[in-house]
Design a binder for these strands. Structure first.
Length: 344
DNA sequence: AAACTGTTCAACCGCGTGACC
DNA sequence: AGGTCACGCGGTTGAACAGTT
């Protein structure tokens, strides 16, 4: 039997729309609404199929469409959302008012994908967190999902920050600062802070994994690029098989520190700053952990948190039952163990 | 100036899905 | 329950334009 065609192929115009056709469609929808797309062309007097009319309206004629080039913030949003949601262009577009899925998709395919596919100046070591214990336990699944999410996000952030020079990069830094600030002020951030507090109070920083205080004071400048006075880009570089790369931007109050020395590490140069411990055994959670310990230099007047980050994380965690984020509110040893596993 | 190559993006195509009968 | 319809989505295409030789 097969599927019925969306429209009669005979007598239906295809290809680029003329201004007259645009005007007819625009006037008709403004007057009557689109109603049934299938019957719209006939009612409006257009020799187009309904599908073509719908596409023309949603992608071009709709009055709320934002025209013009994508801003750096929009670019960053696309990269972040694509990293978490994949090629769900409609879902991404829903987070970006005025932008169509088609526009975002095109922009991704012609600009961002190409840009992100080029090798980074600094190779990002593979993230490889060793999960101890019963791998079939729900927590292990959770942590693996979390690791995947963080891996994707961190790499996207790192690549984006590398991909834009000069002023644009500074804007990206600002975006990242805002992003992590929001993350820090979210419930998730609170949970991490709580856990960190427990870890500090109850365990200290010894053993195979430094305290977060130690980690926070191990900020290093990523790559051989220019040093931003206000910002320290932190990277985790390691030759061990257990720790991972991260590139994050953390605002510090003592950003006036001069570079103490630098040395080569796997994938690039590390800069060490005056008064900053150089020992570091970072991992993907370093971003959060460093923010924890730098909280005295992080201030904010808003607790607003972007929905997509939270939602995307929940989706990716895909934990049966409840909100799926309960473990983050739980100061259980299991989760602390997860933090501990970073350094083996 | 012409030919060629690469890039962009509007539009098309086919498929999945939910609503309806 | 199964067929049809309508719509939305993601991948792909191709015309137009820009840049290079």
């Amino acid at each position: 039997m097969g599927r019925t065609p969306c429209c009669d192929k005979d007598g239906v115009k295809k290809g680029a729309w003329s201004t007259e056709e645009d005007q007819i469609l625009f006037d008709y929808i403004n007057k009557h609404g689109h109603g049934s797309w299938r019957t719209l062309p006939k009612n409006a007097g257009l020799l187009r199929c309904g599908k073509s009319c719908r596409l023309r309206w949603t992608n071009y004629l709709r009055p709320d469409i934002k025209r013009g080039p994508f801003t750096s913030d929009e670019e960053a949003t696309i990269v972040k959302l694509q990293g978490t949601l994949g090629n769900k262009w409609a879902a991404i577009a829903s987070q970006m008012p005025g932008r169509t899925d088609n526009e975002i998709k095109n922009f991704w395919n012609t600009h961002l994908k190409k840009r992100l596919s080029t090798p980074l100046p600094l190779a990002l070591p593979n993230i490889n967190i060793k999960i101890e214990g019963d791998s079939s336990s729900p927590l292990s699944t959770t942590t693996r999902h979390m690791a995947q999410w963080e891996s994707t996000r961190v790499e996207a952030d790192a690549r984006l920050s590398f991909s834009r020079p000069g002023q644009q990069q500074q804007q990206q830094h600002k975006f990242d600062q805002d992003y992590y600030l929001k993350l820090w002020n979210s419930d998730i951030g609170k949970s991490f802070r709580d856990i960190n507090k427990v870890q500090k109070d109850g365990r200290g920083g010894g053993g195979g994994c430094e305290s977060s205080t130690s980690q926070a004071s191990s900020l290093t400048k990523l790559g051989p690029g220019s040093v931003d006075d206000d910002t320290l880009a932190t990277t985790t570089t390691t030759t061990t098989k257990t720790c991972s790369a991260a590139a994050a931007i953390v605002k510090r109050s003592d950003s006036s520190k001069a570079i103490h020395h630098q040395h080569e590490v796997e994938g690039g140069l590390c800069y060490y700053y005056e008064g900053i411990e150089e020992e570091t055994k970072p991992c993907r959670l370093d971003v959060m952990m460093m923010m924890m310990s730098s909280s005295d230099s992080i201030t904010s007047t808003t607790n607003e948190f972007t929905n997509y980050s939270d939602t995307a994380l929940k989706q990716l965690l895909d934990i049966p039952g409840g909100s799926g984020m309960d473990f983050l509110e739980d100061e259980s040893d299991d989760f602390i163990n997860f933090l501990d596993l970073r350094c083996v």
